[in-house]
Design a protein around this nucleic acid. Structure first.
Lengths: 145, 145
DNA sequence: TTCAATTTAATCGTGTACGATTTAATCTTA
DNA sequence: TAAGATTAAATCGTACACGATTAAATTGAA
């Protein structure tokens, strides 16, 4: 009558674990490029839309400046991107991809796609998971107003 | 023909985001108890089985000593648990719940359950997600041998 | 027009998380 | 049984991640 609370039964833990697995899997692919998994997500966001402010990037990735500022600095040091303070509004800092990021895009995304393919995830399963995770997220976001 | 690579289409990002949402949701519940979300997971593991070695705890949570050692130290400082070096094998360190952790168990788990309930997650959806996440994890684990 | 509210990033402190190395204890095997 | 292999935990260095605070620029209302 008591132990409903076990790790294996917790959805939160399943998500936590899966996120960890993705992190490890992607890291192994990205390491040769000198990229971490979160840094790769930044690149994906910028490949999608270049020249965004830190705020906008943060909204896309659900990250605050406490995380982004140092991460962007590291990526700048590694020539992935460049920061530029806006002339029009000096509070804003825009982030632009560097040549290296554009040049390596195809190589990196191909390698990543290759590894994901090799996991044999059915398209149907993939899409259903995406949908369910989104519904779940929305419910949690609503919950905390 | 090109931009299949967008954040919103990436399963890895959906999982990453969802994990973040869980973290924030749980944190808001746990903060009054002076617990972080990962620390709560440690408690769940110990409520399930008390008196385990650091290694065993790490296997259950998918965490290494680089993460666990300092975390356990903090939880020890906050009277949630106690460390004890094994007499039989002095390499091993066993972890035991303290009174505080046993006493607060019901209060904590009730509060957590309450918040999760309020998210209105259907049982069917919950179980399907669990199942799919597990299959996904297994595929990724297999992939990296 | 000025000064208080807001916005944007940077900074700070704490807490995971991971791979690699180190140290100490135990086990193996020649 | 002594040396080498293995195991367990601690330690180290790096990199997120978050909430709170700070500092500077902009906006807006009296």
């Amino acid at each position: 009558m008591e132990d409903f609370v076990t790790l294996k039964k917790q959805l939160c833990f399943a998500v936590y674990e899966t996120a960890g697995e993705f992190n490890k899997l992607y890291s192994s692919v990205l390491q040769p490029f000198g990229l971490t998994y979160p840094q790769y997500l930044v690149l994906v966001a910028l490949w999608e839309k270049d020249g965004v402010s830190v705020k906008e990037l943060g909204e896309k990735l659900n990250l605050g400046t406490g995380t982004l500022t140092p991460m962007v600095a590291r990526m700048e040091a590694n020539d992935w991107l460049r920061k530029e303070r806006s002339k029009a509004d000096e509070r804003k800092v825009f982030i632009y991809l560097e040549e290296k990021a554009r040049a390596e895009k195809l190589t990196i995304t191909s390698k990543v796609a290759e590894v994901i393919q090799s996991c044999q995830i059915e398209l149907e399963e993939y899409e259903q998971l995406m949908k369910q995770l989104n519904t779940l997220q929305n419910k949690m976001k609503e919950r905390r107003l």
